[in-house]
Amino acid sequence: MRDKQNLINTQKTLIHAFFDGFMNGVTDANDLKQDESQTLIKTLLNVYEKISEHYAVVMLPILGVVHHESLEQLQCKLDALRQQGDTDVTAFFKVVCGEEGTYGAMVDDYKANFEVLLKGSTLHPQHLTLADESPTSTYTKTNEEQNIRLLVRTILRAYRCGLQTKSSLQQFKQPTVIRMVLDNVDLLVNGKYTIAQHMDKATDIHGLFLAVLHTQERYNVVQDELQIEMERLIKGDN
Rank of each mutant, 00 (worst) to 15 (best):
D79E: 13
F209Y: 15
H16Y: 03
I195E: 02
S137W: 01
R157T: 14
V89M: 11
G85I: 12
V177G: 03
T215V: 08
T136F: 03
I155E: 05
K192N: 11
V212R: 08
T90P: 00
T154I: 03
D35N: 14
C97H: 14
E53C: 04
N238C: 09
Q146V: 06
G85A: 07
T39M: 03
V116S: 03
H214F: 09
D109T: 10
L163T: 03
D35Y: 12
V47D: 07
K4E: 11
D200P: 00
E115L: 08
D108S: 14
N6M: 11
Q11Y: 02
K33M: 11
F209M: 15
N220E: 15
G101Q: 06
A211H: 13
H124K: 09
E72F: 00
D108F: 06
T90M: 05
Y219L: 14
L14H: 10
E72K: 06
E225R: 10
Y55P: 08
V26F: 05
Q174R: 06
V89P: 02
C97V: 02
L74T: 13
K119T: 15
Q216T: 14
Q216N: 13
V212L: 03
K173Y: 02
G98S: 04
L117N: 13
S168A: 06
D200Y: 01
Q75C: 05
R149M: 15
G236L: 09
G64K: 05
N30C: 04
T136L: 07
E72A: 10
K166W: 00
T140G: 09
H127W: 04
H124L: 04
L156Y: 08
N24M: 06
F19R: 01
V222W: 13
L163P: 02
T122M: 08
L210D: 10
Y193M: 12
Q216H: 14
V221Y: 06
I228Y: 12
S134W: 01
M59G: 15
F22M: 09
Q38D: 15
D200K: 04
L117I: 07
A131G: 04
S168I: 01
M106E: 04
D79G: 03
D20I: 00
T43V: 13
H68L: 01
L163A: 03
K201N: 07
N9E: 08
A56S: 15
A158E: 13
Q34E: 11
S52M: 07
F92A: 13
L74A: 09
N184L: 03
F22R: 07
L32F: 09
E144S: 12
S37M: 08
K33I: 02
R232I: 02
P61Y: 13
T176D: 01
L213S: 15
P125S: 05
D109M: 00
S168V: 02
V222E: 11
N147G: 13
D183P: 00
H214W: 05
D28R: 10
Y55C: 08
L130Q: 06
R82E: 13
L14N: 08
N190V: 09
L63T: 13
E144N: 10
V26T: 09
A80P: 00
A91M: 01
D35R: 04
R232P: 04
V152Q: 09
G162W: 04
D224L: 12
A91D: 02
I155P: 08
G120H: 07
R160E: 14
L151P: 06
C161A: 13
Q171E: 02
L7P: 02
T215K: 12
L163D: 01
Q75S: 15
L163H: 05
G64Q: 04
F19Q: 10
Y219D: 14
Q170R: 07
Y219K: 12
R149L: 12
